[in-house]
Amino acid sequence: MVDLTLEIRKTAKELLEKGEAKVVLGWEKGNFPYSTTPVFIDKPEDTERLIWDEYCINNLALYMLDYKHLDGKVGIFVKGCDSRGINRLVQDKQLDREKVILIGLSCPGMKDEKKAKELGPNADIPMAQKCQDCRYPDPVVYDVFLGEKQNKKVPEKIDTSDVEEMETKSPDEKYRFFTTNYEKCLRCYACRNVCPACNCKECIFDQTATGWLAKANNVSNNMFFALTRAMHVGGRCIECGECERVCSVNIPIMLLNKKIIKDINFLFGDYDAGLETEERLPLGGYDYTDPEEFM
């Protein structure tokens, strides 16, 4: 990864020097051995800050929303999940593909920062949950590729064993599980704000005057938020797991998202969001063959 860091810096430097990109998005080292932080480089001499190591976990795609109106192109380093995030934004008509230069990196799977904090400096740090579940470590779209692809053998279908386990529980058990989890939700909205699929100009939950959702923190309001968000990203969730990673109270957010993915796969055929940008979304259109038992 050290060699690739040098290549990353070189590539970013060239893009900026030649004026092909106005700014390059990547990662730089944080204050801890186990932390990195997104960095926005606009001067060739600052490219030395860029790094590539086993903690470059942030999905950078959503930052493209901040550069929508930039006069010029943005260079962005993309792992598998980041590239699916870019496709998400392009397909949702939030980003002009021509305005980004995607520099692909094959992701070996990033380490779990939370565990690293708990286990201390000399421990063997496990891979982050979102990376354990990842089926697309190589970027699905890119303009330039650095390093070598892993072409790693990954499971063909999403692992929904945790969803299936939950499905076997009684309604009371399910209710208890979700209420206990959403009781502790702080409604800090980190899950929403980090999500590339949450790209609405104005979120329903920010429209306080309408009274859709009261600001009071209680399990009913919190679940209304969580369920509405889960349904809204249904069919568009790219499974990057960022929502669950950033949750400050460790709510298993992906369980809901995976349940919806599983149902969509069953009802509309297997679908992995963010692999391409042309196909119609499973919940984004109507077909005569669509199941409609409820009618």
Binding site: Y189, A190, V194, A216
Partner: peptide
């Protein structure tokens, strides 16, 4: 500020942040 997502995680876990909003049901 560039990297900030404007979520409220820092302010809600902060022991000193004390801003509040008054609302009604």
């Amino acid at each position: 500020s560039k990297k900030c997502l404007n979520c409220g995680a820092c302010t809600y876990v902060c022991p000193t942040c004390h801003c509040f909003d008054i609302s009604q049901e």
